[in-house]
């Protein structure tokens, strides 16, 4: 994989018959010839592409979340409205979550979330001029698929790169922690990770390990993280 540093507004040489653009890239019509288009980057980072050069994206780290459709996020309910909830997902605006966007929810039987509850939801609508919308079920199957209210546990805040790494099944941290004690986790793409374990000290150990491995914090690798976990009493 090639990696090249790009800045916002730079033209990217992405060309493929079946081109797929990932985060940080935008297709624009050329001013002189509207039938042609070029690809420009919208954020600074390392330009990456897949082996056959059909998928392109910009890899960068940030702390502020910008929602994108179909990403799973963890939010805090900040307000109850008649038809739904306002949820803080760490973005510049509050997201809205419809009370009917839950598994098995009907007009009569709505979920009862309090202000301050945590929800694990998927971004169903993200547009630069509109408020983001969330849903807690799969719109096709109407099943929860793990989304919904998160009870108990604790939320750790980390950088956006860290939570993307945690979602990678090849990343070392969660298997390392899971080998030590059973734990439950829900990873939001908005830099929030919900964790639950039996003992408070185990949750604290997870929180401190995530902080230590975070490229924005300690930046430890697998060996260092293992040694660090040994020093924690969990």
């Amino acid at each position: 994989m090639a990696s090249e540093l790009v800045f916002p507004g730079e033209t990217v040489p992405a060309k493929h018959v079946n081109l797929k653009l990932g985060p940080g890239l935008l297709q624009q019509a050329t001013l002189s010839n509207p039938s042609e288009s070029s690809v420009v980057s919208t954020k600074a980072g390392l330009l990456q592409h897949s082996a056959n050069r059909s998928k392109w994206w910009v890899d960068s780290n940030a702390r502020r979340y910008v929602p994108a459709p179909q990403e799973s996020v963890i939010g805090v309910v900040t307000q109850r409205l008649g038809e739904g909830y306002r949820v803080d997902i760490g973005e510049a605006h509050q997201a809205s979550l419809d009370a009917l966007a839950f598994e098995g929810a009907t007009k009569r039987n709505k979920p009862n979330l309090k202000v301050g509850s945590l929800v694990y939801a998927r971004v169903s609508l993200a547009h630069k001029d509109m408020e983001p919308e969330l849903e807690c079920f799969d719109a096709q199957t109407r099943k929860a698929e793990g989304f919904g209210e998160l009870k108990g546990g604790f939320v750790v805040r980390c950088s956006l790169k860290m939570c993307r790494q945690l979602l990678d099944s090849k990343h070392f941290l969660l298997p390392l922690l899971g080998g030590k004690f059973p734990l439950e986790s829900a990873i939001g793409m908005n830099g929030r990770v919900w964790i639950s374990a039996k003992e408070p000290k185990q949750i604290i150990a997870v929180a401190r390990c995530i902080e230590a491995v975070d490229p924005d914090g300690g930046g430890m690798d697998a060996v260092e993280a293992k040694a660090f976990l040994e020093t924690l009493d969990a």
């Binding site: 805090v76 900040t78 803080d88 309090k114 301050g116 509850s117 945590l118 998160l150 009870k151 108990g152 546990g153 604790f154 939320v155 919900w194 408070p200 000290k201 949750i203 604290i204």
Partner: peptide, 19 residues
């Protein structure tokens, strides 16, 4: 927004155990 309910509850239980 004030911290969520799980955060609040967890912090209180942990602090009671001096953690």
């Amino acid at each position: 927004p004030s911290p969520s309910i799980p955060e609040k509850e967890f912090l209180n239980t942990a602090l009671k155990q001096n953690l």
